[in-house]
Amino acid sequence: MQVTESALPAAAPEMRRPGGWGDAARSNIAGLLLANIVFIIAFALLASGFTSPINVYSLSRSIGIDGVIGLAMMTVIITGGLNLALGAIGVCGAMVVGWALQNAGLPIPAALLLGLFAGGALGAINGLIVVLTRLHSFVVTLATMSVFFGVMVLLSGAAGFNALPASLLAFGRLRLFHMVSPLLLVMAVVALLLFYLYRFTAVGREMLAAGANPVAAKLTGLPVERLFVYSHALCGAVGAVAGVMVSLRNGAIVPSMAGPLGADWLLPAFLAPVLGGTALTGGEVSVLGAVLGTVFVEVITSGLYMLQIGEFWIQTALGIALLAAILLERARAGAMLSRSLRG
């Protein structure tokens, strides 16, 4: 343990910064915050109905859902990998909850726990394959998204669960202060837990260190393989939470709710963390950035929708936003590097 503690600052650059707020993270978050404020004001002035309670409610709901999807992907991006099977796992987790509630007759908390566990187990399978075969997680999860989704459809006979307990559905339909969805609070809880994990717990710090430089982390005595499996399992569990949230919005659990093989989740899953400054090469994390990234995406989506741009063009706009964000981030990183070289 002594080795671990003394070695960590070298492995995770973030550790060297007091409080963990680095230059990169701060300017990214400040930029996102500014962009969010500008867009919210602009849409509030331009798009009639943008600030109506109904729109704010649906905005808070989609921020909640896509936020959790983005946070789930973030937990595995920090290992330098990714999880294409996230959508498939999310749907599988929700289906397990549906089965537990409807067929097994379990009480709601037990059913939710079982779903969380199922998502975590599927994620752990991904992690184990990645670690044991040393293949890139891209190809592993490309294969498992197909396997997980296929097995789930075969087991369920492609039939969903539409007789969920009334109390669970009522929770999903709550309107706090007449305009805020409780799903937003679920996202806030998940975000806070992850923030706590990566900031204050040893295992969270070790996950970051393993992702930043696996070889160095290994040499300093960290169980890199086990940490990678943990990260993938965490991704699966958070994915299952997102699956249940989508089900609450729909009022039913259906296998097709995340698109073919769960692929519809991929864009929101990568948009939020990448916009928020989580590096795709691993080792860096910004929970607040991912949340702000989701807010940005949903505000643009909702605003363009209210301006009647047409739902299909919104997809184009989001692609451009992602492209602009990564290119800007790149340019800034380049500028910072040259500055530090000069200085």
Partner: peptide, 18 residues
């Protein structure tokens, strides 16, 4: 190329659908 083509995927597909 993963992240670049993820972005262009959504641009091209959105344009086709639009």
């Amino acid at each position: 190329s993963f992240i670049i083509t993820l972005a262009t995927l959504s641009i091209f597909k959105g344009t086709a659908l639009g």
